[in-house]
């Protein structure tokens, strides 16, 4: 069953090696569509009301984000910005590559002035007063990256599998500035199959169903006060230690509570089995590990299911 969206509010074709910063309001859907297929899209996203809160690109739910996943903001906010409502299997995603740059292509190809996502991002966000220093790591769509078992990473070892008409739908869970760009490196890599193609970007208005879904997502991640209140944005670039500064680490120093636990013979034999299985270097380590591991595995009240996922 598909979700009913509102009307198209914004519609643009991104020509090759371009992008656009687009406000998407809470409850609206950002749709990114392959016009011809095979084009990698790099993506940045900011809280429209506080550019310091931007998308956190990391493997919070694995190295490939898929339909049903959330896109979270960076710490200290760490809250859902977008929900992936639609994403075809042919859209392989990547959260590792930071977005291509001119220095990358200088090294790879010897070309000084090759198009690249860092530059395209900077041009897009400049419309909103941001600059290249505000670009964050990219959430890459239709980017068929791979890595080996020993952790060696390859950004585009495979051809782009995006098909004509493929689209990804992001539901905005807060007002955001979304910045999709067509990757500028695909003419010299398999990232876009050695040829740049256009991409369509649309914003669809909210609907009763989208409003309900937005509320559902947000309610499962109750707002948490950040550990520290927002500070004024620094204007000074040089870093110097503040004389007399005192740290205020949370729960520091730790308080330790000691207990003497009586175990039966059977319990103790089981504890030793755990140690042999690698859960702990000694009796105390194994007992503590077993208790805490059971709690976080079985008794985590905060681990609520995400809408649309079982």
């Amino acid at each position: 069953m598909t979700t009913a969206y509102g009307n198209v509010r914004f519609d643009i074709i991104l020509k090759p090696v371009s992008g656009k910063a687009v406000p998407v309001y809470k409850g609206e859907v950002l749709r990114i569509t392959q016009v011809d297929g095979g084009q990698c899209v790099d993506f940045n996203c900011y809280n429209l009301h506080n550019y310091k809160e931007h998308m956190s690109v990391g493997p919070s739910a694995g190295f490939r984000k898929v339909k049903g996943d959330l896109v979270m903001s960076r710490h200290p906010w760490a809250r859902p910005m977008l929900a992936i409502l639609e994403m075809p299997e042919s859209c392989v995603t990547d959260v590792i590559a930071p977005g291509c740059s001119s220095s990358l292509f200088k090294r790879r190809t010897g070309i000084d002035d090759h198009t690249n996502c860092q530059h395209t991002f900077s041009q897009c966000i400049a419309e909103y007063g941001l600059n290249a220093e505000d670009i964050h790591n990219s959430f890459n769509l239709w980017m068929n990256s791979a890595w080996t078992e020993d952790g060696k990473y390859f950004s585009s070892p495979n051809r782009n599998t995006g098909k004509k008409g493929d689209h990804v739908d992001f539901l905005a869970l807060m007002d955001v500035l979304a910045v999709p760009v067509t990757c500028g490196g695909g003419d010299v890599s398999r990232g876009s199959n050695y040829w740049f193609k256009p991409v369509q970007v649309q914003v669809l208005e909210t609907s009763d169903e989208l409003r309900a879904l937005t509320h559902d997502y947000i309610s499962r991640y109750p707002a948490k006060d950040t550990d520290e209140p927002a500070k004024p944005i620094r204007s000074k670039r040089e870093l110097e230690a503040i004389p007399g500064y005192q740290h205020h680490f949370k729960n520091y120093p730790l308080r330790i509570h000691e207990f003497s636990i009586e175990l039966t013979v059977e319990d103790y034999l089981n504890l030793q089995k755990l140690e042999r299985m690698g859960l702990g270097d000694d009796d105390e380590d194994a007992l503590r590990s077993a208790v805490i591991e059971w709690y976080v595995t079985n008794y985590n009240a905060a681990a609520l299911p995400v809408p649309g996922q079982k």
Binding site: H257, F259, S260, T264, R288
Partner: peptide, 20 residues
């Protein structure tokens, strides 16, 4: 040789104690 009952001293910090 294991006694009938075996005592293990285990320590928890205050955060772990909150879970308990």
């Amino acid at each position: 040789m294991i006694d009938e009952c075996h005592k293990v001293i285990v320590r928890f910090n205050q955060q772990q104690l909150q879970l308990l």
